[in-house]
Simulated scan of single mutants.
Amino acid sequence: MYTAPLRRLPFLLLALGLSALAAEERPLLSLQPTAAHPGDPVLVTVRGLTQVPTGSLGERPLRFYPTREGFQALTGLPVEQTPGAVPVKVSVPATGEAAPTELTGSLAVVPPGWPERKLKVANKFTTPQPPPEVQARQEADKAAFATAFAQSFVSPLFAENFAWPRQVTITAPFGDLRTFNGKKQSQHYGTDLRGAVGEPVYAANAGTVVMTREAYASGNTVLVYHGAGLYTAYFHLSATDVKDGQRVERGQLLGKVGSTGRVTGPHLHWGVKVDDMWVDGETLLKLDFGTGAPAVTQRDKP
Rank of each mutant, 00 (worst) to 15 (best):
P93M: 02
T34C: 15
Q252Y: 05
Q167G: 13
G251Y: 02
F149K: 04
V88A: 01
V248P: 02
T291P: 15
T45N: 14
T3G: 10
G245E: 07
H236D: 06
A239Q: 04
H269N: 04
H269D: 08
V121E: 08
L177S: 11
R178I: 10
G251N: 05
L13C: 08
A293L: 11
W114Q: 07
A108S: 15
Q138H: 15
G58H: 03
D241G: 06
G207E: 02
L237W: 10
A293N: 15
A293D: 15
P165V: 00
M211H: 05
L284A: 14
G39P: 01
K89E: 15
L13S: 09
F71G: 01
L57D: 01
Q185S: 13
T169N: 08
R7D: 13
F174E: 09
V88D: 00
V210H: 03
G175Y: 03
T297S: 08
L237N: 05
A204L: 08
M1V: 12
S238Y: 08
E199M: 00
L268M: 15
L285G: 09
A239V: 05
A293P: 05
L157M: 15
T240H: 07
Q81F: 10
T45G: 07
F174I: 13
A4V: 04
D40S: 01
P132W: 04
Q135L: 06
L193R: 00
G255C: 01
G229N: 06
L6Y: 13
V44H: 03
R299Q: 13
V154P: 06
G39L: 01
T169S: 11
P128Y: 05
D280M: 03
L285C: 13
Q185V: 13
D192G: 03
K183H: 09
A295D: 04
L28W: 01
L77E: 02
L29S: 00
K184Y: 10
F174A: 07
L287P: 02
Q167I: 09
L21N: 01
L177G: 07
A146P: 11
L21D: 00
E214W: 06
D288T: 11
